[in-house]
C-alpha cells in the first residue's frame, strides 16, 4: 500500500515578497516568469497541481 500526503498544501510560491506566507515550504520568486517556472518544477516533482490564489501566491496541492 502506497501512502502519500494528499489534499494538503505541499509548497507555496510567491512573488509578493512583502506578504507573510507561512505554514509550508515557501519559495520567493523575483517575477511572474520565475514563479511559473518554480511552480512547474514543484508540481512535477511533487506530482501535484499548481493553483493560482489570484494574489501573487501559488500553492502546490496533491489531489
Amino acid at each position: 500500500m502506497e501512502i502519500t500526503i494528499a489534499k494538503m498544501i505541499l509548497a507555496a510560491v510567491t512573488t509578493a515578497g512583502d506578504r507573510r506566507v507561512e505554514g509550508c515550504p515557501v519559495f520567493y520568486a523575483a517575477d511572474e516568469a520565475e514563479a511559473a517556472e518554480m511552480c512547474l518544477v514543484l508540481s512535477r516533482v511533487l506530482e501535484g497541481v499548481a493553483h493560482d490564489m489570484g494574489n501573487g501566491v501559488y500553492i502546490i496541492v496533491k489531489h
Binding site: A36, C39, L40, S43, V49, A50, H51, D52, Y58, I59
Partner: peptide
C-alpha cells in the same frame, strides 16, 4: 471545474 495556476497547462 478547477483552478489551474500554470499558463502552459
Amino acid at each position: 471545474i478547477m483552478n489551474l495556476g500554470l499558463k502552459e497547462i
